[in-house]
């Protein structure tokens, strides 16, 4: 696995997340007068998170910007999701972030906060398309990375 680039991505991502959370927390504190603390920071949702019904199945996605440990549930059952780094081009040191699941392990979907901000939702919908009338089993939560 690309430990070096993932580490860098996570470090920069974590720094950005900390700055964003701090700014939001300060703004919220100023407007509401509520006491800020770890619990309040932890409950802030990622704007890319989703919970909706797609083709008759409930899909829920929670992003983990800091650690890349995103969560997807389909009809309440957990789908194993892994974030990976892939090269943008041959012989380039630049990488892009993508997500794969236990149902689409060979089919990475780009995920970022720009044009690919809906990558996790695309992954969830692809899983529903693949499932058809099926449901996930407990093996869908199998670790893979």
């Amino acid at each position: 696995m690309n430990d070096i680039s993932r580490r860098d991505v996570f470090r920069h991502g974590a720094t950005a997340a900390l700055l964003a959370v701090t700014a939001t927390g300060i703004a919220g504190l100023a407007s509401s007068g509520a006491a800020a603390g770890p619990d309040r920071v932890a409950t802030l949702a990622d704007p890319r998170d989703f919970e909706e019904t797609y083709k008759g199945k409930k899909i829920k996605g929670e992003h983990d910007k800091a650690n890349g440990k995103h969560k997807v549930h389909i009809n309440g059952k957990k789908l194993g999701v892994v974030q990976v780094e892939l090269p943008v081009a041959p012989d380039s040191t630049a990488t892009y972030t993508a997500v794969i699941s236990t149902l689409s392990h060979f089919d990475p979907i780009p995920l970022d906060e720009g044009n690919n901000r809906d990558g996790l939702k695309k992954l969830a919908k692809l899983a529903v398309d693949q499932l058809g009338e099926q449901e996930l089993t407990h093996h869908a939560d199998h670790s893979h990375r």
Binding site: M1, E85, L86, P90
Partner: peptide
């Protein structure tokens, strides 16, 4: 780095992290 983000070499071109992605 010998993984999904290796941007040269035969192995990742076969496995699929890099085009043409044979596997």
């Amino acid at each position: 780095p010998w993984g999904s983000s290796s941007s040269s070499g035969m192995r990742n071109r076969v496995e699929g992290g890099l085009a043409p992605n044979l596997h």
